[in-house]
Every structure is written in C-alpha cells, then in structure tokens.
C-alpha cells in the first residue's frame, strides 16, 4: 500500500474502493506496525495541540519573541463578533484561527508543524473551523488530517515543503493544498476532487516567495497563513462544485518545485530579498538584532 504520486494514490483509492484517509491509515499500519487505534490516538494528541494553540492565540495576549507580531488573531475574531464580516463568519474564523496558531508559534508556544512550523496555522485553522460549522467529530477531523498528510507526503516525495528550498509557495502552499484536499473529503468529495482542490490551491499561489522580515517566522508568515486558509477553502469550494484543475496535481507539484528551484537565493528564507529587503524591513531587522 504505497504510492509515489497523486496518480498512484488515486489508483489505490479506486482499486480498493477507499478514501485517501483510508489508504493513509492502512499504509501507516503496515509501515509502523502500530494498530489503527494507536495511530488514531497518536493523531488525537496532535489534534488536541492544534486546538489548544488556536484557543491560546485567540484568548491570550500573545507577543512574538521579537515583538514584531501578536494580537492580530484576536483583532479579527473581535471584529467578527461585533460587525458583519466582509468574508462571512466561516472565512473570518478560519483566518483568525490560522493566524492564532502562527502567533503562538512565534511566541515560543506549542504547535504541530503541519507540514512546517511556518505554515502551522493553516490546517488547524481550516479544519477546526469547518469541523465546528458542520458539527463534525474529533474522529472526522483526525481522518481529515490523514487525508491532508497524503497530499503532504506526495509533495515531500516529489518536491519540497521547505521555504528555504522552494519559497513560501512550497511551505504555506503545501499546507493549503493539504487542507483543501482534507476539506473536500470531509464534505464527501471524491479522491479525484481532493487532488483537484490541492492542485488549484498550489496554482493559485505559484511563485510566492519566502521573504521573512529579519529572517524570523513572524511577518509576513502570519498573513500568509491566513491567505493559505482562505485559499484552501476557496479551492475546496471549487473542487466540490466539480471544478477541475486543467493541469493534473502531479504536474502542478512538479511545476511548483521547478519554480522554487529557479527562485533566487534572496527569495528563499534568507531575508535578503522581498519584504525583508525593503527600507522598513531592514530597519526592523536592525532594531530586533540590535545592530
């Protein structure tokens, strides 16, 4: 029960009449020697950390290590509670929760890298929000995380999820693609539709650079986790409606990898280009580093 790419994963789903989550669980049982129950329990711990990090980010006064970011998640939540949200309550919640986790991460709090620390807000933000809106159980969410991991695994095998290697498109783009595929399966979409959602997601942000101010996982990572969550929801909505990605998922992943490799070093987490190299970005770096 193994696969290298999306094509092989879909073939496995078809041959076994299984969802992506089923395939992932079965593969994990074989590879780890653990029981289904043990694997689900282990992921339950991860889900609990995700939930806690969302709660902390929304309810505590969070300040990042450098002092650059903190409190934005709460701001968005508070406005959603007192005003009619521009994007609608579900989208507003998803983005505030995504930022919440990223803020907790930047404040040296506990998070689940999903797939990385810099993109850790997207999957919890999206899944917890969709779970709440559709009255889903923790078990449903755990299965959705298994689905997400299938997409993350394909990207890790064939490309990269690291900003230093492939830019932000590889990091928050992968997290968003994973979340999108998971939402599609949660809503009863087919494995094919899940991969269309993942493909749409990556295409939407293809080329996004990694240019963190002062080299820290803080800004613009916070709002890029928000756009990642929005991107996941938008892509899932499209795929569930039957919208297909003209370019298949595997080819999109390959394109993303090639684009990432052709990004100059300055735009791959080195803080030498993009927003980090603006006059304000440089001033903030000097203030933080005490230069």
């Amino acid at each position: 029960m193994n696969f290298l790419n999306g094509y092989e994963l879909l073939a496995l789903c078809r041959e076994n009449n299984m969802s992506i989550a089923d395939i992932m669980l079965k593969k994990e049982i074989t590879a780890s020697g653990l029981t289904e129950e043990a694997i689900v329990d282990k992921m339950k711990v991860s889900l609990e950390i995700m939930q806690k990090s969302v709660d902390r980010g929304l309810n505590e006064d969070i300040k990042s290590v450098s002092g650059l970011i903190g409190g934005d998640a709460k701001r968005i939540m508070d406005r959603n509670a007192t005003h009619k949200s521009v994007c609608g309550p579900l989208m507003s919640q998803a983005i505030s929760r995504s930022i919440a986790v990223l803020e907790v991460n930047a404040a040296m709090g506990k998070i689940v890298a999903a797939p990385t620390a810099g993109s850790s807000g997207i999957i919890p933000g999206v899944l917890i929000t969709v779970g709440e809106a559709f009255n889903l159980s923790d078990n449903d969410l755990i299965r959705a995380i298994f689905t997400a991991s299938g997409v993350g695994m394909i990207i890790s095998k064939n490309a990269t999820v690291a900003g230093a290697e492939g830019g932000c498109q590889a990091e928050t783009g992968s997290a968003a693609a994973m979340a999108a595929a998971a939402v599609v399966e949660l809503m009863g979409g087919s494995p094919e539709a899940s991969l269309h959602a993942a493909a749409l997601c990556i295409k939407n942000i293809l080329g996004l650079v990694c240019d963190p101010i002062a080299g820290l996982v803080e800004s613009p990572c916070n709002s890029r986790n928000a756009i990642g969550a929005a991107n996941a929801l938008i892509s899932a909505e499209m795929a569930l409606a039957g919208v297909k990605s003209l370019i298949p998922f595997d080819e999109v992943v390959e394109a993303m990898y090639r684009v990432g490799k052709s990004l100059p070093l300055e735009l791959r987490e080195t803080a030498l280009g993009g927003l980090a190299a603006t006059p304000t970005g440089i001033r903030l770096r000097k203030e933080i580093m005490g230069e």
Binding site: K110, V112, A117
Partner: peptide
Amino acid sequence: IIGPNMIGPSS
C-alpha cells in the same frame, strides 16, 4: 508530515 509536535517558532 503532520509533526513534529514542537515549541515554535522554527523546526
């Protein structure tokens, strides 16, 4: 892929 569980900000 989903992990590690960690203290932030950077793996």
